[in-house]
Computed example of a mutant assay.
Amino acid sequence: MKNLKELTGNFLSEIGEIAQFTRRFFREILKPKQEFGEFFHQCYWVGYKTLPLVGTTAFIMGLVLTIQSRPTLVEFGAQSMLPAMVSVSLIREISPVITALICAGKIGSGMGAELGSMRVTEQIDAMEVSGTNPFKYLVITRVMAAMFMLPVLSSLSNAISLYGGFMGVNIRGMVSWNLYWTQVFDALSYGDLIPSLIKTFFFGFSIGIIGCYKGYHSKKGTEGVGRSATSAVVLASLLVFIIDLIAVQISDILGLT
């Protein structure tokens, strides 16, 4: 019972600290001066450096989903619906969520480890002493980069996964390029695309804020850095699923599903 109370207390305490960290983010983001150079640098690392992993995963995801779905549709004589079914599944849920989870693992852990190392080696303290605002330079730029680059990565993932679906359709059958994309775009609507794109902004924000929080408040020692990186991945991944659940409920209420 004592351990349960202690765990509950630590959990609620951390939620409060994350809320204060988030409030400080919104307060600091409005203050001059903006670190545009560091922001674009982080966009390069968050977006360009993550694209090969996201693209490879998206292609395999579209290919495998198509191959696995085909036998079931063949049993009902509905194999002609395969491009439409795969496209809706990928665009609505699978592609944005998988992209966010990949970014949570790569970007979240990277931010946690990088800022944690800077905290342990007292580089953040040195920035504060020198008059530089470390929160604005280190945290604001990384969170904003994650927010802006997640929708870009998700959009590219959508396109690559649909191309993987085209390859999967033609492994066991023969569908022309024009027919495949006609069926894909006939099945999709703005109600499928817009909600999936909007929630990626929140995915990026949650991944960035959790990764930066864990690193910024890392404990002393190399063990603390590793723990910050690991816990950032776990918590960011959990938040991705929670945000996705909320987004699905809101889309259902608004009649977009």
Rank of each mutant, 00 (worst) to 15 (best):
S206Y: 06
M149V: 04
S228V: 10
A145F: 09
A236W: 02
Y163K: 07
V139Y: 00
R172T: 12
I243W: 05
K199V: 09
V129A: 13
V234K: 04
A232N: 06
L179A: 05
F201S: 09
L188Q: 05
L197D: 11
M118Q: 13
G191C: 10
R227A: 10
Q123L: 11
A236V: 13
F201D: 09
V139A: 01
R119T: 15
M167D: 09
I171G: 02
F166P: 00
T182P: 02
I140W: 00
A187L: 05
V139C: 02
S155I: 07
S161F: 10
F241R: 05
F201R: 08
A146G: 08
M147S: 08
S161V: 01
G215V: 13
G211S: 10
S196H: 01
S218I: 11
S237P: 11
K220H: 15
V143D: 01
S206M: 14
S228P: 11
V139K: 02
M149N: 01
L162R: 05
F135M: 05
T132S: 15
Y163V: 06
V175N: 04
G255I: 12
I171W: 04
L193W: 05
I160A: 05
R142Y: 01
L179T: 00
L245A: 14
I209T: 10
M149K: 06
S218P: 14
D252T: 15
I124C: 10
G255F: 08
G226N: 09
I242G: 02
R227H: 11
